[in-house]
Design a binder for these strands. Structure first.
Lengths: 169, 169
DNA sequence: GATTTTAGTTGCGAATCGCTACCTATAATG
DNA sequence: CATTATAGGTAGCGATTCGCAACTAAAATC
């Protein structure tokens, strides 16, 4: 597929790796549909409004990357099911983050349907960042550290918004 | 710009709203660079390897959407600074989710640099989903509910007033 | 004044997207 | 058994976007 397009640099960061699949247009919309229980080609098609060839391409790519699993139904061999794998399910936080952000800054109201706790039927909390001990933490309390500096107290590096030269890669 | 391309359906979900900006190729890579402290055109250019015209286009689009703020430096009026806004900073969880997912399934090792708590210099926890009361929750415990069904069924188990406070999503 | 730095813009070929039509295999129907 | 409907794709084609390289403009530096 992307022969000429230079591959995103994957040497030292997981983000380009994730974007190689999920950075494609429609990937997240298909993922959302899958999370909402859709499984069949025509369902994805009508739910997203994506073009047929693009949908076929994306489903193949998501399957190739192990995010969806393709299975032919044996009771009706015309039908194919695309189901989320564990790897795909682990993208739920990322999808929800984006969705919550869109709600907050674009939509202004909660999306529908709502993801709730099946114990009390209350919506999940906004997704946020937590320290290693589980305590919620905000951007101002965070720091970028080089890998081999981690845990060394007194390591001098940059706070958020201030970085010296650096190897951002 | 996108005249022919049908706008992503925004009626009832925040995800298409978010993807309108962040679904573009390179948007997340530029965001990551911004989180790492980069501010100038040429810095983004060399850090990401993106083409100049695309970078210009993306910076303009991110600025237009209020994710970055553009400011001309007064000590050197050639220079322009692109700095994250609060709206942009709120994309940090989404970026980290993707990055952590990429680390886990593609990279196999932690990315560099590492985001740490500035109190103990320990890396942040993996980002996950939490119930309204803050308890971590996994996919199997979740349920999609229509908006007007929220809280109705399980209302007996929690005190009054909890719902409105909790329902950011 | 000449050169360098910074932040772009322009032009062009290649790749991708979106739309519509078509195709193949299976299943349901008369 | 012949016909029709359904499910999941391909193929072709124009419109858009991407990536590369060259060029521009303004400000700073020598």
């Amino acid at each position: 597929m992307g022969k000429v397009r230079e591959r995103l640099d994957k040497e030292d960061c997981g983000l380009p790796v994730a974007l190689e699949v999920m950075g494609e247009r429609w990937s997240f919309m298909i993922l959302r549909a899958a999370f909402n229980g859709l499984r069949h080609f025509e369902d994805f098609l009508s739910a997203t409004g994506i073009a047929r060839n693009i949908l076929a391409n994306r489903l193949a790519k998501l399957t190739a990357h192990g995010i969806l699993e393709r299975a032919q139904m044996q009771d009706d061999r015309r039908k194919v099911e695309y189901v989320l794998t564990a790897k795909g399910i682990d993208l739920l936080p990322a999808m929800l983050c984006l969705r919550q952000w869109g709600e907050r800054y674009g939509l202004g109201v909660p999306s529908n349907p709502v993801l709730v706790d099946n114990r009390d039927y209350l919506p999940i909390a906004p997704i946020g960042i937590h320290a290693a001990d589980g305590r919620p933490i905000v951007y101002a309390e965070l720091l970028w550290l080089d890998q081999n500096e981690v845990g060394k107290v007194g390591a001098e590096c940059c706070g958020p918004g201030d970085l010296s030269a650096a190897s951002v890669r």
